[in-house]
Design a protein around this nucleic acid. Structure first.
Lengths: 93, 93
DNA sequence: CCTTTAATTAGAAATATGTCTAAATATCTA
DNA sequence: TAGATATTTAGACATATTTCTAATTAAAGG
């Protein structure tokens, strides 16, 4: 789990918006791009950051590349946040 | 609640470390500074970022300034994270 | 094949961030 | 009040981030 990459990825509002758009189901890069004002290249950069943090997964479907939420990291993110605020518990791994 | 300020604040590893140091109880700026290699001025900058996000509170005690975790934001942070990953629920406020 | 469409990569430019030293502010104590 | 200690503010500088346009890669379909 890439803690720094995760927090870095979440720090940008556009990237958080991308994640929210993906909650409803997977979307192609182009469909996501429609929701934003900037260039496909810029979006692509944001995708790369989200991928590095393993917050999204990708799959090529013909010409398209389909992005989806990697919900399995959700638990990781939650516990990272928890660790910041709660006193060390017993039985910690 | 300052969503962007919160995520921005959490993006830096030193700031996350400051929060963890404060889990054990409040500390003065100087006590916190001891845990780091960089200058008091740099630390002070990080404190300002954490304060802007309302993640920490401060109180002057004589010459010292005492920092403490603002645990009441913890819920906010948790639900922000939750919103990124979970499908919109019913009865949302 | 060649063209079109979808998306990423490369490289440049502007802005933001993290760090430093020096100076300023606040409080304590002799 | 003057000096010492604790901390923040100001200003500078290097690095990182975000965005762009142009070029590249990949697949589809005539």
């Amino acid at each position: 789990m890439k803690q720094q990459a995760i927090f870095k990825a979440l720090a940008d509002p556009s990237r958080r918006r991308i994640l929210k758009l993906l909650r409803g189901g997977s979307k192609t890069a182009g469909e996501l791009a429609d929701a934003f004002d900037f260039s496909a290249a810029s979006l692509s950069h944001h995708f790369a950051v989200l991928k590095a943090a393993e917050l999204v997964r990708t799959e090529r479907r013909g010409q398209y590349i389909v992005y989806s939420l990697n919900t399995s990291v959700f638990e990781d993110v939650s516990s990272l946040v928890m660790e910041l605020f709660t006193t060390r518990e017993v039985g910690k791994k």
